[in-house]
């Protein structure tokens, strides 16, 4: 009964780093990620989360092929900067991945220790925005899985940008046992009414809703900086399993967020609001209904 296991004794410190990458410059970005990870570690972070495409920049069009690396190459670029840390350090960052003759918009989770670097997991973006300013499906292939994986901090999933905007992706992650979701984004700020950007407001509302519905922690790292007039919004958040924002980064500016993650909160919140258990109990019917909807569409 893997899904009923709670890592209730586990506490760790997470950092979300909102940074502006150097466009197309893998070496400079690996140095930036390595330096920021080392600094966060020094300040007590066990897990440091960087935004979508933080190894290269986001809007690259056909330039994605110039900067794409295999997951192990990408990890090693950062490992070369981090070296062998005195205390164990986990890092998640976004990059364009070259694999199986295709390019993906991916994130990887790597573990760094005195023993060296270890690739914990790779996630390939499942929902590729291809509308308006976005043209992902033209330049990258679509990932086919949303996975949860075991870490020294319990079970985690990684989601990339638009995946947060669909209720299906976090639902699958939670059903597969994710206790913490690393949600990384590169979201151009747009529609400036009512004190915030509409895209940032939506992302925050949805992250809170994800945490609230499934009783999971969300660690969100948002890109900042400008690429060809598009300004990434920043405003990263860490959301606890009750849907409360426990740390909040400013819009537009580079910033490091730190938050204490107590996985014991998951058990407490889910016992008060057992939405995930309710979902699991009707999952067979939900699955059948989805299949039926798929047949009809």
């Amino acid at each position: 009964m893997r899904f009923e296991r709670y890592n209730s004794g586990v506490r760790f410190t997470a950092a979300a780093v909102q940074i502006a990458p150097f466009k197309g410059d893998i070496e400079a970005n690996a140095r930036q990620i390595g330096a920021a990870a080392a600094r966060c570690s020094k300040e007590g972070a066990d897990l440091v989360v960087f935004p979508e495409t933080s190894l290269s920049g986001y809007f690259l069009e056909a330039g994605t092929a110039d900067v794409a690396l295999s997951a192990s190459e990408a990890m090693n670029k950062v490992a070369a900067q981090i070296g062998k840390p005195e205390r164990d350090l986990d890092v998640i960052f976004g990059f364009y991945e070259r694999a199986d003759g295709a390019i993906y918009n991916s994130s990887l989770h790597a573990s760094f220790s005195a023993g060296g670097a270890n690739l914990v997991a790779v996630h390939r973006k499942f929902f590729l925005p291809t509308y308006g300013v976005f043209d992902e499906e033209r330049f990258v292939a679509r990932g086919r899985q949303i996975e949860a994986y075991d870490t020294r901090f319990g079970r985690m999933s990684m989601l990339i940008c638009e995946e947060i905007w669909h209720s299906a992706a976090p639902m699958i992650a939670a059903l597969k046992g994710a206790e913490t979701i690393a949600a990384i984004s590169a979201s151009p700020a747009r529609n400036f009414a009512e004190g915030t950007f509409a895209n940032l407001d939506r992302t925050r509302r949805l992250l809170r809703a994800i945490s609230e519905e499934h009783g999971v922690w969300c660690i969100n790292a948002m890109l900042v900086g400008f690429e060809g007039g598009k300004g990434f919004s920043g405003g990263s958040v860490v959301v606890d399993p009750s849907g409360r924002i426990v740390a909040e980064g400013p819009a537009l500016e580079e910033h490091i967020l730190m938050a204490e993650i107590d996985l014991g909160e998951i058990e407490r919140v889910r016992s008060q609001s057992p939405m995930l258990a309710d979902l699991r109990s009707v999952l067979e019917d939900v699955t059948r209904e989805i299949c039926e909807a798929n047949d009809q569409s």
């Binding site: 502006a20 400036f192 009414a193 009512e194 950007f197 900086g225 300004g231 819009a251 537009l252």
Partner: peptide, 23 residues
Amino acid sequence: LDIDCELAVRFLTAFLKFECTRR
């Protein structure tokens, strides 16, 4: 046509700095 002027000015100032100075 709504616009939060303070936010827009912050954004546009950051845009000018980033595009001219950093880039």
